[in-house]
Design a protein around this nucleic acid. Structure first.
Lengths: 250, 250
DNA sequence: ACTTCATCTATTGGATACACTTTTATATCA
DNA sequence: TGATATAAAAGTGTATCCAATAGATGAAGT
């Protein structure tokens, strides 16, 4: 089977300018996938000892990986309190999708300018894999491949910097979906990815940009529903509020 | 004097979700400014021991800071070879400015939607400080404030994620200027920042976007002149190529 | 029973120690 | 003199150790 580098989320560069060696990279990628594919729920604590034992390295290496993930905003690191899987707020979620619209629509002209038949064929293959995952009900793989498609599309622009930004936005989107979406939400509707390939192949810049804008708004609307209640911790406060309201009503 | 948080490049957030404490933050900011203001030339080696002694901490803390800077692509870290101030390639430089055009133009609608008179006044103050720096010939401060202006503008959009991206792009732009620009290049021409404030105040979305696109193209054109010769290291290879060509021609 | 305070444990932050790699300096030979 | 091999030095990568902090547990007092 042909190389499928373009199917990978994340930088995937051998020399990424970050100085990571093979072992670090493996650990990073394991955690990355675990978070993005939602094997680890948002808010999950990530104790250094546990991870160190899991991967058979010292805490030093783990801390390096955690900091990298923190910088990509996939984990939250608080002073003296360790790392946990990030829980994007509703505001963050909106920012993420807004940024995606700006970047993905804005890059369309260059994507179309550089799109070769071979590149489009790779995109089609990616979509077919996405459909296959959907058909067999593998929503994790489906969401992952959906994100990979968006990244692969922008990668065609040849702008590595922009691709890195989008990679971060897409992986954070997965966290948003995990936090605010119902399981069905994200997996069902958008097998629309087929459509845009045709529009791009036709060289229709405005059409492709419009498609992308609408597509991203659809995804966002299907996901960021309402501000969630702050988790169980504030149970007491909630009960107090209820008590107060009853007092007022009496 | 009023708060001038918006004049700072970099995140400046107290809790930045990265788990840095005050001392780390100070070291980070020192190095950040040293690089962005071009006190450290691109390519300068940054040995951990030296930095550790300089700031009176252990290498552990230094490494954390260096990794953060590496992730922001202001320093280059190579395995077993340590960190050095990044030297963006010409391709990278083009990518950076291309990404800036997409983001800064794309965010204009939201910037205009949220621009308050007070916010515009802060921008004006920033520009006047930039002019003051220019007039007194302080090109370092001038470049810094020019970047801070662009960041402050986009920050008006309220999109923190996008602002973070732009912050990175702007600081990398300073590196590009340091690498490829002549000293005069960047400092002289664009005191044009005044103009865009008026356009934004007038609510002219298209006009502001056009202005921004042209402005960024001007800056890029004045800087990324030609592909530089790969430094002295490849001297031998060049001589060999010359020798080979002579063999062929003979 | 509920709150408050003290102690104890688990976990993180930072420094040190040591192994390994790269680079520089030196010596040897053509 | 110039090139190559060897040895010393410098610098980075990782593990371990100790101190500091947060969270948990339990006791005392209201």
């Amino acid at each position: 089977m042909g190389k499928r580098a373009s199917a990978e989320l994340g930088t995937g560069r051998a020399d990424d300018g970050l100085g990571g060696n093979g072992r670090d990279e493996t650990i990073y990628r394991n955690l990355f996938v675990a978070i993005v594919e939602n094997h680890l729920a948002p808010g999950t604590k990530l104790p250094e000892d546990t991870l160190a034992e899991t991967y058979g390295v010292s805490r030093t290496s783990i801390r390096k990986v955690l900091q990298r993930l923190a910088h990509e905003r996939l984990v939250d690191v608080r002073l003296n309190r360790g790392a946990s899987v990030a829980q994007p707020s509703v505001g963050e979620a909106r920012d993420i999708f807004s940024a995606r619209r700006i970047i993905e629509c804005g890059a369309i002209p260059q994507v179309i300018a550089k799109a070769t038949p071979a590149a489009l064929e790779e995109l089609r293959e990616l979509v077919s894999r996405e459909h296959a995952a959907q058909d067999r009900g593998d929503w994790r793989e489906s969401i992952y491949l959906s994100g990979a498609f968006h990244v692969a599309l922008i990668r065609l622009s040849g702008n590595e910097t922009l691709t890195d930004f989008l990679t971060q936005l897409v992986s954070r989107s997965s966290l948003v979906i995990a936090t605010y979406g119902s399981p069905q939400t994200a997996s069902c509707r958008h097998s629309e990815h087929d459509d845009v390939i045709g529009i791009i192949a036709a060289g229709d810049v405005d059409g492709a940009a419009r498609w992308m804008d609408r597509h991203l708004r659809d995804v966002e609307r299907s996901v960021v529903l309402v501000e969630e209640e702050p988790v169980a911790a504030d149970l007491k406060k909630i009960l107090e509020e209820v008590a107060q309201r009853r007092t007022k009503l009496r």
